[in-house]
Design a protein around this nucleic acid. Structure first.
Lengths: 147, 147
DNA sequence: ACAAATAGTGCAACTTGGTTGCAAGTGAAA
DNA sequence: TTTCACTTGCAACCAAGTTGCACTATTTGT
């Protein structure tokens, strides 16, 4: 099975029609180790080949259907990343989407990591009465490439 | 010492000239338990009384000088909160600004919490080679008010 | 294999949140 | 009280993302 077939199946599994743009977008995201912005994806796809609005809608659809997730960066942009099988999330339904994001202060790339959410604890009394449903840990520093 | 005097001193301690707008902005932020958006602050101040650009600049200045910090929300806005004394941060210089933010999924307010950063760990082999300088944990759920 | 129904695409115009440039006003050090 | 750098207010601007609408492509049923 080639990667296009694989991607088609993935799209269908999420009740999405298989279109050229979705396949290409999915492919770009799958190949990237880091979460990508609209602009970055658009560039990879060839900006003339894909309308910016269509790409925004494609990405939003991926997020809405639970195929991808979105991270807001410090400079008020969004980055998108596909949920990967190999990024084993907690099997606890509640915390299925717990995340660790690593933000490189040098190249500004954002890496997504699998994380055992039970290892994330906040030991503080002032949090009494707050019901925690989901956790995201965001780490800043330097990635191996920029080291 | 009244609160204005206190705020004046705080501003001076951060090498900022004491102006009406800074005092008022500081006051609004100090009174709030949650991080506030430009729009929220502006409303508290009386939108006619403070130019939006000036408020943006005031907030940016606070952040630049280390008096406040900024959290990017999911919907690409910024919220601002003063670093408080009573929010004891780790005394480890490196991780001085480690944070826990609680995002209420109902009222969308963001609460800042003190946190013992050493309690935040990500146990994962795939993070080899990543140098972590700062950590932020972001928790989603329901705050006591919306419970 | 084909047509109808449904969903996706492309374009232009728009909205929102935030920034820049510049002239005028103000705080604080001397 | 004068000076000078810093702050403020206004208008114009910018960039990211969205909406409305006509058109096109994918899917489903036959």
């Amino acid at each position: 099975m080639n990667s296009d077939d694989y991607h088609s199946e993935l799209l269908r599994a999420y009740n999405l029609k298989v279109t050229r743009i979705r396949l290409q977008t999915l492919d770009v995201l799958m190949r990237s180790r880091t979460a990508m912005s609209h602009a970055q994806i658009s560039q990879k796809l060839g900006p003339k080949d894909v309308d910016k609005v269509t790409l925004y809608r494609t990405l939003n659809t991926f997020v809405d259907k639970g195929l991808a997730h979105r991270v807001a960066t410090e400079d008020r942009n969004w980055l998108y990343a596909i949920y990967r099988n190999d990024q084993a999330h907690s099997h606890d339904q509640e915390h299925e989407h717990d995340h660790a994001h690593f933000v490189c202060d040098s190249c500004e790339k954002i890496y997504c990591f699998p994380v055992d959410s039970s290892a994330l604890t906040v030991n503080n009394e002032s949090m009494m009465g707050f019901e925690i449903k989901e956790k995201e840990i965001r780490l800043h520093g330097r990635c191996p490439v920029c080291h």
